[in-house]
Nucleic acid binder design. Structure first.
Lengths: 100, 100
DNA sequence: TAATTAATTAACCATTATATTAATTACATC
DNA sequence: GATGTAATTAATATAATGGTTAATTAATTA
């Protein structure tokens, strides 16, 4: 059993970075929004009711962490979710925490 | 679809507090340790290799948030997990993130 | 090429989180 | 009641986050 604990503690290094990313409200919501499909920065900003510059900062953060990719179209930039785990995790957490 | 996003954004208030708790390495590890069964503060401290006072602070934090309960036995205090969701969430995340 | 729009980046400040050290409480034993 | 041990609490210093405003880049259009 003590061995089982040690194994779990080692694994935590792979799980905690995910928690650090999604423990920020804005970042978590961005992931939820993009989980429904690609969006422009302006659309995300509008849905969140947040400052554009702050949304942009968090988008960059999420992109650097490997959760998002982006493409430019004229003056607008579209972001999309590239993480394979997030949709599954969200689905699973909704089921457990919200009983849905 | 836009409606679906709004629903998810509202729900996030119920999910994010969990992330804030477990995004701290010490707190997450404490939950993992206690997931295997009740433990004394000293045992937890030893498994983590952390300062006793810091472990104690995080135990209080987790207790205040409703994740733990405690009982005294002589000079020692035993903590145990009372959250029903955590074990299930951990199991689920291990499966998704670690493919186990 | 000046003006406009969309988005990013930089600079900054307030708040919160992390972690340490010192002081305190609570119990047990001599 | 003095001593020792286990744990908590208080006080504090430092690092990290959250969030704002202002400046900058990049593309578009008059």
């Amino acid at each position: 059993m003590q061995q089982k604990i040690k194994t779990t503690l080692k694994e935590s290094d792979k799980i905690i970075p995910f928690f650090k990313i999604v423990s920020n409200t804005t970042r978590f919501k961005i992931l939820c929004i993009l989980n429904e499909g690609e969006k422009r920065v302006g659309e995300i900003q509008e849905l969140l009711g947040a400052k554009q510059s702050y949304v942009s900062q968090q988008l960059r953060h999420l992109k650097n962490a490997g959760y998002l990719s982006s493409r430019r179209e004229g003056t607008q930039i579209y972001y999309q979710l590239i993480d394979k785990n997030f949709p599954e995790i969200l689905k699973s957490l909704r089921k457990i925490i919200l009983k849905k």
